[in-house]
């Protein structure tokens, strides 16, 4: 059952727009259903680019050298039942600020490799990983670009020992429906 939810909002635009309204309404609906919701607006956070130093794998296992706003977000994610990534489509992909955050999630896994579905993937560092959900605002993206982003998330889930429970354009569902769907996961 989904009790704790972390929303990682990758919208670089913090003003009034459809995606922000959707997230706001979704958060209210989820809370009304007694879920605990933590929301991180990446546009308000300081998230440095991962520099590939691998300190988090071989020097301070599980901890990044940068003590910016990424660690608190990671802590929330790893202790959640569901993580929702939301982003507008920009140049046919999710936003750079969300991508920068994803680059910083590698402390959550172990450097050791195991075979998953016939491919090399990193082993778990934690016993449990949250399920994943994705919300995108399509903007000028093509059908192909949207499908590709969905595919990228289905690869991310392999590396993060998770499953993608939903991938929605905000035009294809409303916040109440989604909240209802989440309560039945």
């Amino acid at each position: 059952m989904i009790q704790k939810i972390t929303i990682v909002d990758g919208n670089p635009d913090s003003g009034k727009n459809p995606l922000n309204s959707f997230i706001e309404e979704l958060t209210l609906a989820l809370k009304a259903g007694n879920s605990h919701v933590d929301i991180f607006h990446l546009s308000e956070k300081n998230i440095k680019q991962c520099i590939g130093c691998w300190d988090c794998w071989w020097k301070t296992p599980g901890v990044c050298r940068f003590n910016d706003d990424a660690p608190e977000t990671l802590k929330s994610i790893i202790n959640s039942d569901l993580v929702i990534y939301s982003s507008p489509m920009i140049m046919g992909m999710y936003s750079a600020i969300l991508k920068k955050f994803h680059d910083r999630t590698i402390p959550l896994v172990h450097p050791y490799i195991k075979i998953v579905e016939g491919e090399y993937h990193h082993k778990k560092r934690y016993p449990n990983y949250p399920k994943m959900g994705v919300l995108v605002e399509p903007n000028d993206s093509s059908k192909e670009e949207l499908e590709l982003v969905e595919k990228i998330f289905s690869r991310i889930k392999l590396n993060f020992h998770s499953e993608v429970k939903f991938f929605y354009s905000i035009n294809s569902i409303n916040p109440k429906q989604l909240s209802h769907e989440i309560s039945h996961l």
């Binding site: 680019q49 991962c50 590939g52 920009i90 140049m91 992909m93 936003s95 750079a96 600020i97 991508k99 920068k100 955050f101 994803h102 680059d103 999630t105 590698i106 000028d140 990228i152 690869r155 991310i156 590396n159």
Partner: peptide, 20 residues
């Protein structure tokens, strides 16, 4: 380099800066 199944965030940033 491949970072978390895609380009590094900074490369995406550059792509956004170039824009359409």
């Amino acid at each position: 380099p491949l970072y978390v199944d895609s380009m590094p965030g900074m490369v995406k940033q550059f792509i956004e800066t170039i824009g359409n």
